[in-house]
Simulated assay, not measured.
Amino acid sequence: MTRTQNDRAELEGYDKLELGATGRPLRDFPEPRKLKGHGPARIISLCNQKGGVGKTTSTINLGATLAEYGRRVLAIDFDPQGALSAGLGVQTHDVTTIYDLLLSGRKDPQEAIQHTGVEGLDVIPANIDLSAAEVHLVNEVAREQILAGVLRKVSDDYDVILIDCQPSLGLLTVNALTASHGVLIPLECEFFALRGVALLVETIDKVRDRLNPAIALDGILATMYDSRTLHSREVLERVVDAFGDSVLETVIGRTVKFPDASVSGTPITQFAPEHQSSKQYRQLARELIARGAIA
């Protein structure tokens, strides 16, 4: 723990409490209450223009954990690489994908929804075809709102819709932000990942001003944190100093279990349910529910 973190704790009267990686007291968020009914969904984009920061991993495991807590979850694979679809073990070829729904307003989104091995977690897959979507949509009327129109048709069936965005701030990402009620920013605890956050927040502000006044920043999620390295600790401290309470208390550590789980096509909460990372994603789900970002 750094001297700055100690000072902050003492000033806030927390000198006798254990501090977490973010320099704030560790809290055990309560088990969420059971829902009496389902829908309409709150739509959350997991967004960062830098690749390899844990967007897909967080979408998969947050979705699986929310499903464990009785929420009906729909995950949207909005990246042409199709990593979310592969990580959940669903078909991506010779099936209806999000690309088909974007290009044809007449298609029923129910045709694209696939069930996963996690009860309560469904997915709309993507494949490389999605890379052509921006070219096809650029001349469409209200092109930034096409995904919102697709999701409106299924939002009453789910409690949460999670959109796994591609590492870009192009038209697809703007579509995701326009369709969303909230944004969750996974941020790798590494200096170059930190540099792009200000640009992303600026993009969210522009979308709020011009397209979607209701969008909110649900939080910044520190990922790939390694408490053994000074670099990780310093980056996380700088993020907390810059963004304050927007930084979630839950921190996701670095582990080789994530790629192992991806290869198996299952969330880590099923692949290694007692692993520390599984506990961290359960903590993340409870924190977002406690914050009111999710019902």
Rank of each mutant, 00 (worst) to 15 (best):
A176Y: 06
I215K: 00
N212Y: 06
G170V: 10
A214T: 13
R210V: 10
T203R: 07
G196S: 09
D209K: 11
A176Q: 06
R208C: 07
F192P: 01
V197Q: 02
P186Y: 05
L171S: 07
P186L: 02
V197W: 01
L169E: 09
A216Y: 09
K206E: 12
L177S: 03
F191N: 05
T178W: 03
L184E: 00
D218H: 14
L217R: 06
L200K: 01
F191D: 08
T203S: 11
A214Y: 12
A176S: 14
C165P: 10
A176R: 00
V174Y: 02
V174T: 14
K206T: 10
R195T: 13
H181R: 06
Q166K: 13
C165Q: 12
P167I: 13
L172G: 07
L200E: 00
E188V: 09
I204K: 01
E202V: 07
F191A: 14
R208Y: 08
L217K: 04
E188F: 06
C189W: 00
V183P: 02
F192T: 13
L172M: 14
A214W: 11
R195H: 12
G196H: 04
L199T: 10
P167G: 12
R210P: 03
Q166L: 14
L194F: 13
I204E: 03
A193P: 01
V197H: 00
V201S: 06
C189D: 00
D218W: 09
R210G: 08
S168K: 05
A198I: 10
L177E: 01
C189T: 14
S168H: 12
V174F: 05
H181I: 07
N175G: 08
L199G: 10
E202T: 11
L187M: 07
A198W: 08
A222Q: 04
A214N: 14
I220T: 03
E190R: 05
A193F: 01
P213Q: 12
N175Q: 12
A179Y: 01
R208G: 04
V183E: 03
H181P: 03
G182S: 15
D209N: 13
D205C: 09
L187P: 00
F192G: 07
C189F: 03
C165K: 09
D164R: 10
E190W: 06
A193L: 02
A179G: 00
I215S: 03
